[in-house]
Design a protein around this nucleic acid. Structure first.
Lengths: 246, 246
DNA sequence: CGCGGTGTTGATCACAATCAAGTGATGTGG
DNA sequence: CCACATCACTTGATTGTGATCAACACCGCG
C-alpha cells in the first residue's frame, strides 16, 4: 500500500483530509485542527493501539496501515468487530462511558494521528462545522454497524462477497485500485469478523475464484467481475439465480 | 405498561428524565431543553414515526410505548435493526447524511418528544453538558450495535436468551419488573431481529419454558431463573454444559 | 359460529461447522 | 543450502443446527 504518511503531521498537506475529520472545514479551521494533533510513534504489526476497558483520552485517525478492532466476549474469545483503513476515525465507541469498548490492533505497520479528547471537544465548541463533521462520522459508524448486523443474517457466500465489495469501495475512495488489492488480515480474522469458520471462508473464496469472479493469490485479490459480485450481494437468500457457473 | 405520558411536555416533571437526554443537566438547562420540544400526536400501532430516506429534521425521544426500527434490504425484504423503549432516542443514524437510515414503526400506542435538530444543535452549542450527553447517547448506540453484531454469530438459544435478558434489564432500568413483562412485538419481529425463523423462536421459547427458566403465555414472559438465563448468554457455543434439563 | 391472523409442533433438508488430513509458504538451525 | 519445523491456508468427509415445508392449535372478532 502506498504511503500516505507525511513526515510532519499536517492536515492541509494530507491527501486524506477530505475523507477524514477536516472534511468541509475552512483552511483556517483545518490549521487549528492540525494544531491539536499529537505525534505518535508508528505501530508495528500486532501492536495494540488501545485496549478494551482503558480510559479513552484520545481518538485516533489512521494515516497509514490498517487496524482490526475486537471485543473480548464472555467466554474469553475475541470477536472482531471491524477493520479500519486510512482516513477512518477510531475510538468512537468510547463516547458512552469514556472507556474503550473494544481493542484495536495494527494489521501491518501503521501510523495514526492522535486527537486528545479534551482539546478536540474544546475545538468542537468553537468550530461548529467540526462538531458537525464529528457527528456525521458518528452517524456513519452507526450506519455501517447496521450493515454489519444485516450481514450477520446472510448466507456465507453473500457475507464473503459483501466483505470483498466493501473493501473494494473503501480502497477506491482512498484512490487505490478497486479491483486489485491485498487483504491485510488473515483468513482467521476474516472468518471471525464474518461469523464463519476459516474453512468456509477458504471455500467461498475458492468458489468465487473457480467462477472466475475473482482471482485469489494468497492475500492478493483481483476482482474480475464486479457486477457478478454485486449480484451476489443483492441476491435474496432463496431464489438465488445461478451465477454464470463455470 | 404504565403511562409515563405527561399531559404537558416537561422534562423536569418527566420520570424518564434521568434515562433520557436531560441526564446530568442543571435544572435551568433542562428547562431550556423542554423549551424546544415540539408536541406530537400520539402514534397508533403500526404507524410510522419516520420513513427510511426521509430528510431528518428532528430526533425523537420516546415517552411511552415502543418502536421497531427496520431497514429495507436490497431484495425488498424488511430487516428489523432494533427495538426502542421509553427514554431512548431515535433517529441518530441520520447524522451521516441528514436522512433517516431506517424506518421506525410503533409497536403499540406510543408518544414521543420531538426535538428539532436545528434548535437542538443550537442548544448543544450553548450547553456543553447537553452536547456531551448527546455524544454519550451516540456512543451507547454504537456499543449496543456492536453487541448486536456479536449476537448474530451466536447459536439460536443464546440469541433468544440474550434478547430476553436485554429486555429485562431495560425494563428494570425503567422501573418496571425485570421478571414479568409483555413482549410488544410479534414472533415474526423477534425472529427477523434475531436473524432466525419464527419456528426457531417458538421452539427456543418452548425449550426455555420446559426447562422452567421462563414461563411463556402468549406475549407475556415471566423469568423464573434469571441466573440460568445469564448462564446461557455467557456460554461459549461449544461445550455448553447441560442447563438443568427437566 | 367460521374465519384470519398468530403462534406451535413435527418431518425433512441444506448449509455451514466440525473433524481430519494435506499443501504451500516462510523461517531457522545445522 | 538444505532439512525441518511452523504457520497459514486449502481440501475432503461427516455431522448438527436451524431453515424449510407442512399441518395443526389457539385466540380474537365479525
Amino acid at each position: 500500500m502506498p504511503e500516505f504518511n507525511n513526515h510532519r503531521i499536517s492536515c492541509p498537506n494530507c491527501k486524506l483530509a477530505d475523507l477524514c475529520l477536516p472534511h468541509g472545514l475552512q483552511p483556517q479551521e483545518v490549521a487549528q485542527l492540525t494544531g491539536i494533533i499529537k505525534n505518535k510513534l508508528p505501530l508495528q504489526t500486532d501492536q495494540l493501539l488501545y485496549l478494551q476497558g482503558q480510559t479513552c483520552e484520545s481518538l485516533y485517525a489512521i494515516k497509514s496501515g490498517s487496524f482490526r478492532s475486537f471485543i473480548a466476549t464472555a467466554d474469553g474469545e475475541e470477536q472482531t468487530i471491524g477493520f479500519y483503513l486510512p482516513g477512518e476515525l477510531m475510538g468512537l465507541d468510547a463516547f458512552q462511558h469514556g472507556r474503550f469498548n473494544c481493542s484495536a490492533m495494527a494489521l501491518e505497520t501503521a501510523s495514526v494521528c492522535e486527537l486528545p479528547l479534551t482539546q478536540l471537544n474544546a475545538l468542537c465548541a468553537r468550530i461548529p462545522s467540526l462538531q458537525k463533521q464529528l457527528m456525521r462520522t458518528l452517524g456513519k459508524e452507526i450506519a455501517s454497524d447496521h450493515d454489519k448486523i444485516l450481514l450477520g443474517h446472510r448466507p456465507a457466500k453473500q457475507r464473503m462477497a459483501t466483505f470483498l465489495l466493501t473493501l473494494s469501495h473503501r480502497y477506491a475512495a482512498l484512490g487505490f485500485s478497486s479491483t486489485l488489492f491485498n487483504l491485510t488480515m488473515s483468513r482467521y480474522d476474516i472468518a471471525n469478523y464474518l461469523g464463519l469458520t476459516i474453512e468456509t471462508v477458504s471455500r467461498q473464496l475458492g468458489l468465487l475464484g473457480r467462477q472466475g469472479i475473482i482471482t485469489v493469490k494468497q492475500r492478493g485479490i483481483m476482482i474480475n467481475n464486479m457486477q457478478a459480485l454485486q449480484l451476489i450481494v443483492n441476491a435474496c437468500p432463496q431464489a438465488c439465480p445461478p451465477v454464470a457457473a463455470v
